[in-house]
Computed example of a mutant assay.
Amino acid sequence: MATPPPTGPLVTRDGIAAGLRLLGATPGETLLVHSSLNSLGWVNGGAVAVVQGLLDALGPHGTLVVPAQSADLSDPALWGNPPVPEQWWDRIRATMPPYDPRTTPTRGVGVIPETVRTWPGALRSAHPQTSFAAVGPRAREITEGHAPDCRLGERSPLARPEELGARVLLLGAGYDACTAFHLAEYRVPGPLVRVGRPAPGGGWETVTEVSITSEPFGELGRDFERARPVVRGEVGAADARLFPVADAVAYAEEWLRARRSPARGFPHPRD
């Protein structure tokens, strides 16, 4: 059977940069980007061209930040995509390679963040499960000091873009991918959980962390977009949204506080 031709549109590095500028991205700013390569169309050069286009739009004084999560460095008892046999769990825990920011690949965040992670000059934060990678003059300021017991809170790279006046770019990604909302979760009382992961020196460790979930973020994002200024447009074939990190965090704090149960951690459903 013949392979069907691509449906397009044809997207190029310069087209991505032009689309971002038209959306409102400005040279020298810091962007926290959540992305979907497939949503853009047929990209000549793939993820490399997308990263080049992002850096072109930001210029030499801008900084690109992406989530570089490694969710597979987690307790196999919680795996579901796919699950593994229970009789394997202890052996997996005992032999799982520890996190190394230089070599541990990203998982679950797409090919564009993985490309940023390996980009010349990229820096990556130290958390073994919820790291961020950054390229640009503010990369070290943003990625350093990621506390091992703070996945996405005040001592994570999420707090730095908020302080620096950075913006979130959703590039073909939905609000369910918006990590800025997680920072708000840390500011609203919620339950603590025990999180298992490989220890830095080998073996297994368990730490106490704030319970987090992106389950309500779709509804939260829709409400946020109705209430706060969000720039919307298209880059290639992808829907794109641009808004300040600080606006997203502040709105999410209010939204979650009105709905979140301190004992359960999930927003109450609307009446």
Rank of each mutant, 00 (worst) to 15 (best):
L10S: 13
V11Y: 02
G19H: 08
A25P: 09
V33C: 02
S39I: 01
L40K: 03
G41E: 14
N44M: 12
A47V: 05
Q52L: 13
G53N: 11
D56L: 10
G62A: 04
D72Q: 11
L73M: 13
S74T: 13
W79G: 06
W79F: 06
G80I: 02
Q87N: 10
W88D: 12
I92M: 11
I92N: 01
R93M: 03
D100L: 05
D100I: 05
P101A: 15
T103V: 13
T104S: 15
P105T: 13
R107S: 11
V109S: 00
V111G: 04
E114V: 07
W119M: 15
W119F: 12
G121E: 05
R124D: 06
A126N: 05
F132I: 08
G136V: 04
R140V: 04
E141M: 07
G145L: 03
H146Q: 12
D149T: 14
D149W: 14
D149A: 13
L152N: 06
P157T: 12
G174E: 01
Y186V: 02
Y186P: 03
Y186I: 00
V193A: 03
V195E: 07
G202Q: 10
T206W: 11
T213V: 02
E215G: 00
P216R: 00
G218E: 12
G218R: 11
R226I: 00
A227I: 01
R228S: 00
R228Q: 03
P229R: 05
V231T: 14
R232A: 08
G233L: 01
G236F: 04
D247W: 04
V249E: 10
L256Y: 06
R259V: 08
P262D: 14
P267A: 12
